Simulated scan of single mutants.
Amino acid sequence: MKIVLIGSGNVSTAFAHLFESLGHDILQVYSRSLDQAERLAAKLGTSATSSLTDINKTANLYVVAVTDNAIEQVIEELPQSLKGIVVHTSGATSMDVLTKFPLCGVIYPIQSISKDSDLRSKETPIGIEGNNEIATALLLEIGKSLSKKSFYCDSKQRLALHVAAVFSNNFTNALYQVAFDILKANNLSFDLLKPIIAETAEKVQHHIPKEVQTGPAKRNDQKTIDRHLDFLSGKPNWETIYQELTRLIRNKDT
């Protein structure tokens, strides 16, 4: 398959290595920064451009892998005459932004992708959506080649996945940093928490999270909660987070 990558950041790079490993022909890399496009293109042995009007028009698949804020502008500037399938990779953006193309859709990896991410294990779930039966069938076929965990989901389901991923990944990581800061301020190593973090992550592989919830909020241990809040009194933001999560666990707001 002939592919054009529109974007040169983490997601585009991860997909580039995945497509390359499967023997696809990456014709071109686009980025607003020609230098960045050329760096990724050099790794792939292909051409680069910083002009959307110069996009190669012979590809079978155009992968728009840019930030959510940039998607609509990039789509607007892409030539409408593209014959291949045009997809974006966003979890929070509707497929409707692509309606100017006769064949379009979404390839959404449910993964936190950084420069070191590797999608080649075929273990990353990938959500697929197409604007018609032809596009959906073609994208599902592509999806199955990319991951054994590819599946169909519509735009609403994909948004739900993205929101859930923010809760389970981004917010959790932010809370890890709070824990890190608390320990550092008290001359303790964050390494001390790594076993309990690993244990919790392992539990949710086999149980509904609510079933394995522990801690003072779950036990309604108000004395301990009050001691914790007193400890956090100098950090009002952390205190608020503690109170809100305690309410959540106690099911007062759900």
Rank of each mutant, 00 (worst) to 15 (best):
N237I: 13
A185Q: 13
N237L: 15
E77H: 14
Q205K: 15
M1I: 07
N169P: 02
A201M: 12
T254M: 10
N10Y: 04
Y30K: 13
E20M: 04
I107V: 14
G91L: 09
V66N: 12
S114K: 06
V178E: 00
L245T: 06
I107E: 06
L140M: 15
L34K: 14
N132E: 12
D96L: 09
S47L: 13
V11S: 07
K57N: 12
L188F: 06
M1D: 13
H24S: 10
A185D: 11
D116Q: 14
N60F: 09
T172Y: 01
K43R: 13
T246H: 05
A174D: 03
V63Y: 04
D221R: 03
F151E: 15
V64R: 08
A135N: 07
S31E: 09
E123L: 11
L183I: 03
L98S: 08
E76Q: 13
Y152N: 04
T224Y: 05
D154Q: 12
L192Y: 04
K203W: 01
N169M: 06
S47K: 15
E72C: 06
Q28E: 15
T200E: 04
F231N: 01
K203N: 11
T240K: 14
N169I: 02
I110T: 09
M1V: 06
H228K: 01
T240R: 13
Y62C: 00
L175Q: 07
L159Y: 07
N56T: 10
K194F: 00
S155N: 05
Y30M: 09
R120H: 10
D181S: 06
A217I: 09
D191M: 02
W238G: 00
L34I: 15
N131L: 08
F167W: 13
A65Y: 01
F19A: 03
P209F: 09
G23Q: 12
L61C: 03
A137Y: 06
Y176N: 08
T214H: 10
G105V: 08
P195K: 03
F180V: 00
D118C: 01
I197K: 00
L138T: 08
W238N: 02
P209K: 08
L22C: 12
A135E: 02
D35S: 09
Q111V: 02
G143K: 11
I241H: 02
H162S: 04
K184A: 12
A179Q: 00
K43Y: 08
T124Q: 03
A41N: 05
Q243E: 12
S12T: 02
T136S: 12
A160S: 12
L248V: 08
K252Y: 03
P125Q: 12
S90C: 03
H88T: 07
T49V: 11
